[in-house]
Design a protein around this nucleic acid. Structure first.
Lengths: 347, 347
DNA sequence: CTGTTAGCGCTTTCAA
DNA sequence: TTGAAAGCGCTAACAG
């Protein structure tokens, strides 16, 4: 602070070599035959002066920032509603730092279409971005792609060749529904996690229908309701379902958070989970395990999503030949009590 | 991508001025009298060429990165266990971007003492850091401070003059306990959020005792148990308390997550919340509202914590005269059903 | 009011 | 095996 910054020049002088040599030694540049003695002197001088190369200058010279941007296009509340995003972020930065990259965290205020994240690329703050919550009406995304920027999406955009990493929503929903079918249920309702404008929502609904079809069960739209991220929406939707003349014996709720409200609604009319109505959730939020009853649900590879996104992006940046740029990660069924699986065993 | 990068030189040429003028115009440097005509020509040229100043070069020349680092010293699981950190991060990046700063997200793998975050400063990746989860045995922290780096802590370090922003844990715990006292309870137990090695834990315990003392209630260590972040720990602790010869009539659990387990334990022995045992939590996690019963708890200014941290740091970086560098933010009592407040009214 | 010029600290080609 | 020198793109002190 008080003293001037130590530069490679200082190190060179102390070691009695040129700055070039310092750079070669400290960066361990391959193909350079430098005498053991020189090498040692350089290291010693650097240590002695407490020298640290200036990242900015290095970027300047290298023409690369070694930074990836993580752009959150969703509202923050929504993004972090389900404990999912922190894990994604964790995986992302893990993968990044493993490859010597840093992570710039860039949430976009909802409704901000002023191209905030374009600047990340245009002004070269980062070498590329991982974009969470892509929307098909995002003009910035098209623009940025057209300019050849490196972008990886977390989640899919229909009919697009943009590289992405996503979770297998269809497969997960199918697995959840099949689990209920295997337990003997025929009249299975579904509550979505969100309105169908969200692709994840559509995909989960598709998985539910797929499972029914595979088992020869007629899917019935009167058994489908739409959630909206919150427990309240689950409560409302479930009440609606319970008012049906022919009540479902099981329900697949495509979000644990929404399921929370659904369970409440079921209880309130004096029915029990899973004895009267079996329930499977989706997401495996940390609290799913501690709900009453503990929730059978679908676990998503959140860490893997972030890790995969960063990894893919960095390979794109590095110019590696990447053969697979659209990746879908498998989900996992976690059986607890709410589906009644343990109940059947007990009998 | 394909074509070479557009530089201020190109803009200057097209506008028929020098690079200096371009810089002055585009940065709107005060005190420069530039003709309206020139100004317009520069803007036009920049627009036409789709010019964007290179952040790296700019940093190089300015000697400042306009980046703050957010360093997470806790384990990720722990950091994000309670929905708190995402909000902090949100507030942080809001404050940062409002002042033209970007946020570098830097989680430290637990047990990593290799000075990973020292490099953030030493190599000038950032102008300063906000450090979450500081520990008194953190040598890197002392070192970095000694070198004059700008650091703001989220949370306190006893007997230190390092700038920090923290939540009023003592006040919050006191408020929670007083709420129970006001409802007529005398025999009030407490379960901490974590072992006492954590300063937040100690502070909350202190607040609990303070409230008792203020009301002339003898505090009794047999009524204090230690949680450990998880519902399980709350379950165990509560069971332990229930086994006492003289059962408490109320319990203050210094973490909503831990409270979840406590409620379970109470239910399991056939008692009701709040009729038999009143309960107040801490943190106001999003699910607190949807627990059964909805949890009375203490809300923390998570967004404000992050915002305040970034704001303070940036003022420190800018060299502003900052008179108050140790900030404590107020908490808020959120009354729901678990404390029995609404119950009393009903009667 | 505008242009010249000298850095910022590093990498890397080319020559010695 | 090592060194000299040319950038990277921008800012800002100083001249004009």
């Amino acid at each position: 602070m008080s003293t001037k910054r130590v530069t490679s020049h200082d190190v060179a002088r102390l070691a009695g070599v040129s700055r070039t040599t310092v750079s070669f030694v400290l960066n361990n540049v391959p193909g350079m035959q430098i005498s053991e003695d020189t090498r040692r002197r350089v290291f010693e001088a650097a240590r002695q002066l407490n020298y640290h190369p200036d990242a900015t200058a290095r970027r300047m010279a290298a023409g690369q920032t070694n930074v990836i941007g993580f752009v959150l296009r969703q509202s923050h509340e929504q993004a972090f509603a389900d404990h999912f995003m922190p894990q994604v972020l964790s995986g992302l930065s893990q993968a990044a730092s493993a490859q010597g990259f840093h992570t710039l965290f860039e949430p976009i205020p909802p409704g901000d279409n002023s191209g905030t994240y374009l600047r990340l690329i245009n002004e070269r703050h980062a070498d590329g971005i991982v974009l969470s919550g892509p929307r098909s009406d995002d003009e910035d995304l098209l623009k940025i792609r057209a300019e050849g920027a490196k972008v990886v999406l977390l989640g899919q955009l229909p009919d697009s060749d943009i590289p992405f990493v996503d979770v297998d929503n269809v497969g997960g929903a199918c697995m959840a529904t099949q689990h209920l079918i295997e337990l003997g249920h025929q009249r299975i309702a579904m509550i979505t996690n969100a309105p169908l404008a969200y692709t994840a929502s559509t995909a989960r609904l598709a998985g539910y229908r797929q499972a029914l079809t595979l088992s020869g069960i007629q899917s019935d739209d009167r058994l489908v309701r739409y959630g909206n991220f919150t427990p309240q929406s689950g409560y409302t939707a479930m009440n609606d379902l319970l008012a049906q003349e022919l009540r479902p014996t099981a329900v697949f709720v495509a979000s644990d958070t929404v399921a929370l409200g659904a369970v409440q609604a079921i209880r309130q009319v004096g029915l029990r989970v899973p004895e009267d109505i079996a329930l499977v959730g989706f997401d495996d939020i940390p609290l799913a395990e501690f709900m009453d009853p503990p929730l059978t649900t679908i676990r998503l590879p959140a860490l893997g999503l972030g890790f995969g996104g960063a990894d893919l992006l960095i390979r794109l940046i590095s110019g590696d030949e990447v053969n697979l740029t659209q990746i879908i990660l498998e989900t996992q069924l976690v059986v607890r009590d709410s589906s009644g699986a343990n109940l059947s065993i007990r009998k």
